[in-house]
Computed example of a mutant assay.
Amino acid sequence: MSHRNARLTVHGRRILVDRVLGGRPVAHVAAEMGVSRPTAHKWVRRWRAEGETGLADRSSRPRHTPHRTPRAVEARVCDLRRTRKLGPARIGPVLGLPASTVHRILTRHRLNRLSWIDRPTGTPIRRYERDRPGELIHIDVKKLGRIPDGGGHRTLGRQAGRATRGNMGFDYIHSAVDDHSRLACSEIHPDEKAATCAGFLTRAAAFFHDQGIPRVERVLTDNAWAYRKGLAWKNALAGLGATGKLTRAYRPQTNGKVERFNRTLLDEWAYIRPYTSNTERAEALADFLHTYNHHRCHTALNRHPPISRVNNPAGQYT
C-alpha cells in the first residue's frame, strides 16, 4: 500500500464507494472493509467531489519543510559524490553537514551506492525501470518437478524420496511482472505451449486491469518458440493491442525482473517448507502472490509493496 498505515488500495476504495452508493449503511460497509466510519465517509465525499481521481492517494509530504537542506547544498553533495566518489563521512565535514544528513540526501537522489554509479561519468546506471505501470510486462516460465502424494525427498529424505519419485513430470509456472511496479501474477500449467502462453497472457492482462493497470503496452519474453513463432501468442498480443519484444539471445538478465521474481517464487513459495503433495504446493501459491503484491516489502521500491506503485505511478512514496 502507498501509505504505511493505509488500509485500502484504490481498488478497495472503489468497492467501498460502490457499496455505499448502492444503499448500504456506511457503518456496515466500513466494518466489512476494516476501516473507521470517518474514513469511509472521507472516500465517499472525495468520490462525490472529484470522481475517480478522488480515490487516488495523495502525498503526505507537508506543504512547508523549513528545516530541509537547501537545494543548492543538496546539489553540492551530489556533485561531490559523482565527481570525487566521496562518502557521507567525508562529504559531511566539507559542507558542514552531519554524515546522516548527507546519507539521506544521497539516498533521495539514488546515489547512496557506488555500485549503482558509472565510475568515469558519475551517472547512475544500475537501476532501470519504465515510467508507468503497464508500459512493459516481463513474462517467463519456471519448470518445477511435481511432488508425489506423501511428499518427496524434502519430506521423506533423499533416499526415500527417490524411491517414491517415479515419473511425476513437471509443473510449468507462468509468471508476469510489471516493470514499473513489480506487481506480479503466476499460474501453474502442465506445459509451455503457444496456446497455454497466450491464455496466460490474456488472463495476466485482465489481472493487471483489475489491480488498476488499464493497459499492457509491451510484453518482454525470452526466445522460446511459443513467443517467437506461436500464432496463438501473436493473436493474444494483437487482441491486447500490445507489442511483443524478445530478449537478446543468451542474455537472460535482459528479462531480469521476472528472473529475480522466479528466485523469490522458489525461496518463498516452492521451497519454503516441505509439501506433502503437489496439490498442497499449488494451493499455497495464491497466498504467496497476495503477500508479495500487497504486504511484502520490496527493496527496489523503498520497502513498499508493489501495489503502492500502481496507486502512485509517479513514485511519490517510493
Rank of each mutant, 00 (worst) to 15 (best):
H3D: 09
A6N: 02
R7S: 11
V10M: 01
H11W: 10
H11M: 12
R14E: 15
G22N: 12
G23K: 05
A27G: 02
A31P: 03
M33I: 00
S36M: 04
A40R: 02
R45L: 12
R48N: 11
A49G: 07
A56G: 05
A56Q: 04
R63S: 05
T65E: 02
H67D: 05
H67N: 11
R68G: 02
T69K: 06
V73T: 14
E74R: 13
A75I: 05
V77F: 02
L80C: 11
R81M: 06
R84S: 10
K85S: 08
A89P: 01
R90G: 01
R90D: 09
P93E: 02
L95M: 04
G96V: 05
L97N: 08
L97M: 13
S100Y: 07
S100I: 08
V102I: 13
I105P: 07
I105T: 11
R108P: 01
W116M: 01
R119Y: 12
P120S: 04
G122T: 06
R127H: 14
D131H: 14
R132C: 08
R132L: 13
I137L: 15
I139L: 14
G145M: 11
I147M: 02
P148E: 14
T155A: 15
Q159H: 08
R162G: 00
R165S: 08
G166R: 09
N167T: 08
G169K: 03
I173S: 00
H174I: 05
S175C: 06
A176P: 03
V177K: 08
D178R: 01
H180L: 04
S181R: 06
C185R: 00
I188F: 04
K193S: 06
A195K: 07
T196L: 00
A198Y: 06
L201G: 07
L201A: 13
L201R: 04
R203P: 00
A204C: 08
A206K: 07
D210H: 15
Q211P: 02
G212W: 11
I213F: 08
I213R: 01
P214S: 11
V216N: 05
E217I: 07
R218N: 07
V219E: 00
L220G: 02
T221H: 05
D222R: 00
N223P: 01
A224R: 10
A224N: 05
K229W: 11
K229Q: 13
K234C: 01
N235I: 04
N235S: 08
A236N: 01
A238Q: 08
T243G: 09
G244H: 12
K245I: 14
R248Y: 14
A249Y: 12
Y250H: 13
N255E: 11
K257W: 04
F261K: 07
N262W: 09
N262D: 12
T264L: 10
L265N: 06
L266D: 08
D267V: 09
W269C: 05
R273L: 14
P274R: 13
T276F: 12
L285N: 07
D287L: 10
F288V: 00
L289E: 12
T291V: 10
H295K: 03
H298F: 13
L301C: 14
P305G: 10
N311V: 08
N312A: 15
A314F: 06
G315K: 04
T318R: 14
